[in-house]
């Protein structure tokens, strides 16, 4: 599903010097895989995730998503591909404070040209699936951290992406809430969703099928 070849990401330091965040990354991720990316802070984990999620455009190398050569796509084409194929879960949940749970779930659909009735049906399904119907009119600040991340996951997959990217999804949760989210990930993976998560936790990493270790930008 994903093939990275010789991906490099660097930032200029001045006087012609470059600082490399990622070096010579070669990585294959098959459909239905559940990959945990681990490594110390500054190893390039989040950068790799944002490259996979097509937010970052400043890399070099080759990136194939299914058979599409992402490295040849223009910015707008990458955005379209991302909207169709990728969902995101963030450590800080990143729900929009001024929108209700329902409205937060509706946002990704509003950017994907669904009709109003389709959006309503999908949001209703999602609320049902994640058992948060009773919380649909609440604002994020009225939810616990675990509940907020639950909404974050629901929002990430509401448009049925093939790939779910999660950047330390349990980093702000206490252990029982973290376990719930990881169980949810496992179930989603079992249902066929490809997941790449960044985590510091060995325990959470163990929910994946394989672990990639990054150090100083290199896969080790």
């Amino acid at each position: 599903m994903i093939r990275l070849h010789n991906i490099e990401r660097s930032y200029p330091l001045g006087r012609g010097q470059m600082f490399y965040v990622l070096r010579d990354i070669d990585l294959d991720i098959a459909a239905g895989d559940f990959v945990s990316v681990m490594g110390p802070s500054g190893a390039g984990k989040s950068t790799l995730l944002h490259i996979l999620g097509m937010h970052d455009h400043g890399w070099t190398g080759e990136y194939f998503f299914d058979e599409t050569a992402v490295h040849h796509l223009k910015s707008k084409e990458r955005a379209t591909l991302r909207n169709e194929q990728v969902g995101f879960v963030f450590q800080q949940y990143h729900l929009l404070d001024d929108l209700t749970v329902y409205e937060n779930l509706d946002i990704p659909l509003s950017y994907r040209h669904y009709s109003k009735s389709e959006r309503a049906a999908l949001v209703a399904d999602s609320l049902d699936r994640f058992q948060i119907v009773g919380k649909k009119d609440l604002y994020p600040r009225q939810l616990s951290g675990g509940q907020q991340q639950l909404v974050g996951v629901a929002r990430a997959i509401i448009a049925s992406p093939k790939l779910l990217l999660a950047d330390e999804p349990t980093g702000n949760l206490h252990s029982s809430q973290g376990e719930e989210i990881m169980e949810l990930f496992r179930r989603l993976n079992e249902e066929g969703m490809t997941i790449v998560q960044v985590t510091h936790s060995e325990k959470n990493a163990s929910y994946g099928k394989r672990i990639i270790q990054l150090r100083d930008g290199w896969i080790v």
């Binding site: 999620g53 937010h55 707008k76 955005a79 991302r82 909207n83 995101f88 963030f90 990143h94 929009l96 404070d97 946002i107 990704p108 950017y111 994907r112 929002r155 448009a159």
Partner: peptide, 16 residues
């Protein structure tokens, strides 16, 4: 800014 980043991460285009 953060909200705009979230929206763009969730699929919003510049025009949106």
């Amino acid at each position: 800014t953060k909200e705009f980043g979230i929206r763009m991460a969730l699929g919003a285009q510049r025009r949106d």
